[in-house]
Design a protein around this nucleic acid. Structure first.
Lengths: 270, 270
DNA sequence: ATATCGTGATTATAAACCTAACGTCTACGT
DNA sequence: ACGTAGACGTTAGGTTTATAATCACGATAT
């Protein structure tokens, strides 16, 4: 995550040369174009064009001193603040513009979300919007990414229940630890994630590790109900079957025995 | 300022097609690629690539319904929040990175800043950083851009004095109204701006209207002193000369008479 | 003379953009 | 049954633009 500052500058819209030049300028200034081209690795023939763009953007300043022109960076904090402010303004005005356009899209569908980042972002957003209840099933590795949002939700008095496979630290929330059955683990490739918010929407993520991570989101009432129901009942299954004792086998139809095998087994072993 | 939302999206890093497609998606969804290409003006041959990028970025979602694939946008507010959060993170982590690199640049120079926006941004930044005193000379048209920052400074108990040519509304600040002499107006092309902050730094902007607006910034003590002195004494000049009365003409050397002509005249006329 | 300094011209490459044509389906009217 | 048309998706060509990579030419200065 914490890569070269040059990369980050490129993400902010700089060209690679511009980024290199700016970083080099921060390292040492004031310098002439020639000096900078050496220290930054930007070809001499490009450095003036690049410096021109930097000054035009407000990232650098020029200084004429005895015939020669020297350059210095605008202090990083100052420039970044400026960038940030511009970006904020853009976002805000866009929000207004786009809010006017948006027509209520039909939510009674199942939508697909692609990309690990987008899925986690959606999950975070859902948690952030939660008003009353959150049911969340995930593997412990996925937990840290959502922990801050969950803690914030708890502070808002949202009831949070997390189902996972080993104990997690979530004060104020309820953590239910239950093993994942082998067949489920086999059937689900990669990490999984089930998130039910306010009995209104559900996010089901699969293959979270793979590069082409995929998730489904819906506010379809039935699917939401099913997902929530599954989360809340599944951990009890072994105990319920225990109560049934031997009668359990009679109640369960032949073809479904296999399905319950693991639960029964864990009862026997436990 | 308030242009096409598509332009703003482009500024946020979208391609033009991506922006058009997203806006069109907000207008109506869910739609197939074909429909969207018509409504958005994006060529059919590009629409799927574009939609792919949008979904990869978390701006759109796919829906499979009866063989056909349909698309819908991630709600604007949600997506923009997400973008904003990412941008903030980038900025913050960059600030840390770059702060570590920055070597104190020599400030005893006069630096040049280009571009109207950059100059105004620098002025705003200076005002924002001001701790004790602000002396500012400008024409009334330039005032609104800086007004919020100035008011904020006044709230911080910074002493603010504005020199201009017609009365301005700046409660808590001191506004000195004085005419600009004709020769000064002739000599200065376009708008001008002089800003002295905390007796430490000064910004002198010229040709603010021209496309190649230019400004000088320095913390050189002498220049700062001169600029501040000029601002504070200039408005008194007519009155001072009035006190001198006729002796004024004797005191002033032949070659300088022209320089004071206007002041003397305004004294005579007033 | 050699390191420093500034500029111009040239080419390569990839991304974005644009246009045209080619396919499959399905529906509808004759 | 047949042809047409429109929805739908794909393929292949092309231009333009921004960035990157190189070479080459002049000038100044110690």
């Amino acid at each position: 995550m914490n890569s070269d500052p040059v990369d980050k500058l490129v993400k902010l819209g700089f060209s690679e040369y511009e980024a290199k030049a700016y970083v080099a300028l921060l390292r040492e200034s004031p310098v002439t174009g020639y000096q900078l081209s050496k220290q930054s690795g930007v070809p001499r023939s490009m450095i003036y064009e690049v410096l021109g763009k930097l000054t035009a953007r407000g990232a650098a300043m020029t200084l004429r001193k005895g015939g020669a022109t020297k350059y210095a960076p605008v202090p990083a904090a100052e420039f970044l603040d400026q960038l940030h402010r511009e970006h904020e303004e853009l976002i805000f005005s866009l929000k207004d513009d786009l809010a006017a356009l948006t027509s209520a899209s039909d939510l009674e569908y199942v939508w697909n979300i692609e990309g690990h980042e987008n899925i986690m972002a959606k999950a975070e957003e859902m948690i952030r919007q939660a008003k009353a209840r959150i049911y969340l099933a995930l593997l412990p590795v996925t937990f840290p990414a959502l922990q801050p949002a969950l803690e914030e939700a708890i502070r808002r008095r949202v009831r949070v229940v997390v189902y996972t496979t080993s104990d997690l630290d979530l004060p104020g929330g309820q953590v239910v630890v239950a093993p994942v059955f082998e067949d489920a683990r086999d059937r689900v490739e990669g990490l999984m994630l089930i998130l039910v918010v306010d009995r209104e929407e559900v996010l089901i993520g699969e293959r979270l590790t793979a590069t082409q991570a995929r998730a489904s989101w819906t506010s379809s009432p039935l699917l939401v109900f099913i997902a929530e129901h599954h989360l809340r009942t599944d951990p009890y299954l072994p105990q319920v079957l225990a109560c049934l004792e031997d009668r359990g086998l009679d109640l369960i139809q032949e073809e479904d025995r296999e399905l319950f095998a693991h639960a029964l087994e864990s009862h026997i072993n436990g």
